[in-house]
Nucleic acid binder design. Sequence first.
DNA 1: CAGCATCCGCTTTGATACTG
DNA 2: CAGTATCAAAGCGGATGCTG
Lengths: 217, 217
Amino acid sequence: MRSYSEYCAVAKSLDVVGDRWTLLIVRELTLRDACRYTDLRNGLPGIASNLLAERLRDLEAAGVVAREDAPPPVATTLFRLTPRGEELRPLIDELMRWGLPLMTEQSPDDAVRSHWLAGALDLMTVDRQSKGPPVTLELQIGDQPIALKLHDGAIETGLGPVENPDATLSGPPRSVLGLLLGLLELAEAEAGGVSYRGDPAILDRVGAKPMAATAPS
Amino acid sequence: MRSYSEYCAVAKSLDVVGDRWTLLIVRELTLRDACRYTDLRNGLPGIASNLLAERLRDLEAAGVVAREDAPPPVATTLFRLTPRGEELRPLIDELMRWGLPLMTEQSPDDAVRSHWLAGALDLMTVDRQSKGPPVTLELQIGDQPIALKLHDGAIETGLGPVENPDATLSGPPRSVLGLLLGLLELAEAEAGGVSYRGDPAILDRVGAKPMAATAPS
DNA sequence: CAGCATCCGCTTTGATACTG
DNA sequence: CAGTATCAAAGCGGATGCTG
């Protein structure tokens, strides 16, 4: 991207990460750690192959991403955030926070990936019953199941199947999210195509994280 | 901008604010409150006039910016962030934080505006002598003076001249910033073209804000 | 003068095909 | 798997002109 040529910290940041696709590449690497080129392509549906290659080169030159040769058994190239790249995590979190209200609009041709949603849930939900017994909830949305482990007031999110979940939840992502964040009642969500199996009390434990106090200006 | 068509909060945010110039427009409005079209142009050197108009229309449609007719004496249009737009402030702050290390590189054709620097100083500096008497420091960098008012461990930044400042500081922005953030000693900064008038003890009171603890993941 | 709209050459992106 | 090559379409930058 052409530099903004402004002696301003915001502009300098955008000179590095302001290109189209760039912050989504960083998102992939923050959500999934080291990725192969192919993993990145899968997590960035619609990106042109030449653009991905070019962005990775730019990010490497900027010291945000590092390329490493994977250990022997696999023998492939891995892309990983450098420490400087890791410092972009709060920025990705802010984008996620600000974008969450926009998740009420789901276009029919929106791609869905479980790790995107897991990241948002990780950031935005809590176990409201801090003294409750540990329970696990499996969400069937996106390209793979999402595991929610509730314990001690926190929710740990993970990808992949859960053995013997205490409850399972599936349906249109929009409705599943609305239900988990407390914007929809179970009955409404079910009318919206959600299917839930398990004790409804478990669902009630999941809620939106209270907003952090506004940062001191 | 073309939508990323991803059902992901980060992508949804970038669908709204990911266009070139868009976040810099938001920066202007967060740093300077309501702006006229002309003020925005001045704060965004290099933007094409049609692009500014188009971005403002897009931001208005997205509910981020509102247009209002200014009160009688001036009778001009003002652009202002909506409450939803104000919620982007933490994002701008994060961009500023991440970009600050890049301020060590100042290209000769970088434009400089005082309010950009005042914003960064506001975010990143503290009065290290929390019990010291209130003092004011005037910086002569950019297109207008910057006032730093040190009192009770905090630094209040403002734009415009100070009457009877306790100290004044001028020179190349890069060096002035390095001096204030403690990356340069006064002697080094002076070698770099900085000129300081006042008690050196005042300078010592200004320092970089200690990093906030990493946000709980 | 403030707030745009139009035009045009240039750069970036998107889609697909191809390669070591 | 990890890219390069190609080319049309879209977006941007800069200049200029228009309107209240």
